[in-house]
Design a protein around this nucleic acid. Structure first.
Lengths: 228, 228
DNA sequence: TCAAAAGTGTTCATCTTACACCCATGG
DNA sequence: CCATGGGTGTAAGATGAACACTTTTGA
């Protein structure tokens, strides 16, 4: 039991983790096993421990609930409406993560909660204000994708230009011209062309590329501004 | 006294309020009258009350400490490093505000703390991690200014195109071409030209313009994207 | 009449967009 | 040999950058 002179809101983190598979952009959800909203789907998250940084709390909860670790995670927004949790005033710091579902396939969560990936057009109704948080995360993803090289986080290390283009098309919800897209993305000089090509495809195999972090960093230092 | 089953970090808000006067972009600071960091300068802010939204807490503290109210305020970032406050684990949600110093001149704060506007190149050393928060806010301001019509918040209702240009030059720290700037900003169609001109200037008086919020909103609905 | 800032267009380079066909591969 | 996606260039339009002089006003 812990006692304070003044009342304190509770503090949690919640994560919106996006993943990409062959079909669509998906969000990671867990099924709640305790009230409130027992049995409903919600964002993975939980209480921040004293002595723990916000990001550490977010990563810990994700690992506990969904067995995911080691990927891009960045703070999104904090929500503190006193009524957002029916129990009491709970402030949540939301995080926004990106994984590629090839390297991080869905696994049973360690603490036995049901977890799953849901297509964005196919989300169940969410507990708390989590739908709003997902909406904000999606807006943020769209914004970041245009101006920062985060899309690569959703792809395997080696990818084809068509895969990259499809990622942009799916997230931004519009079609892009193949020739213009390739011209633009290659002109940025932050992709390394590898010697490898796609395997096991029933047509001409596409060349595989890799994001060149070092080249990106160097260009960024020199005032280069990523934009797609 | 309030007792909880698990320990809770304390929760505060801190505000980085930018103001523009004739000379430079300034930040609003208060001098702390209690430990820790007693006597040092810090961002205005304080504890979030239970039952109070985050933004309400930020506005309340600002009003109490600096007598400022009724201006643009938006959430910035949350900081939760366990060591950022020497007393205990304190998580802060930072906000970022814009005021024009003509309509909101510096006044004595109601609760008798010393408050003041400091030029960005002239900041005293700040308590806690507040320098980092200011740096983040400045980055955000620079980013927002280019892509959202927030600059007007720093100017009086009626302003000249030169004032607007100087604002951009000061915040972005680079000079802009007068003709190109005017061409671009007018082509956006979100400024209303008024019949009025500058008063009491010792040279040809410039025409006064006004931000046309309605026109901006309408254009935004139709997929228009502000950019300067 | 002088000082100070307001106001105004054109040109050139760059970037963006639209668009269609042949090629390589595996089945 | 056919189906599938991979890969490639050009031309026209739009946008951004560079640049200097005349006008208005008050002191």
């Amino acid at each position: 039991m812990f006692t304070y002179e003044y009342a304190r809101p509770a503090l949690t983190t919640d994560c919106v983790v996006f993943g990409l598979d062959d079909e669509a952009l998906k969000v990671l959800l867990i099924q709640r096993d305790i009230p409130p909203f027992e049995g409903e789907w919600a964002l993975p998250g939980g209480f921040v421990h004293v002595g723990e940084s916000l990001e550490a709390a977010a990563r810990r909860e994700l690992k506990e609930e969904t067995a995911l670790e080691g990927f891009f995670l960045e703070q999104l927004h904090s929500y503190g409406d006193p009524d957002r949790d029916p129990r009491e005033h709970v402030v949540t710091v939301s995080y926004f993560g990106l994984v590629n579902l090839i390297d991080h396939p869905p696994r049973a969560a360690t603490d036995a909660r049901n977890a799953g990936w849901f297509g964005l057009d196919d989300l169940p109704s969410l507990a708390f204000d989590h739908q709003q948080i997902v909406d904000t995360a999606l807006e943020r993803l769209r914004g970041k994708l245009r101006y920062q090289p985060v899309g690569f986080e959703l792809l395997p290390r080696l990818f084809t230009l068509t895969e990259l283009q499809q990622l942009y098309e799916q997230v931004l919800e519009r079609t892009l011209d193949k020739r213009n897209f390739r011209k633009k993305v290659l002109s940025l000089g932050i992709l390394r062309e590898t010697d490898e090509v796609q395997q096991d495809v029933a047509h001409r195999a596409a060349r595989l590329y890799e994001f060149d972090e070092a080249a990106y960093e160097e260009r960024r230092q020199n005032g280069f501004h990523f934009e797609l």
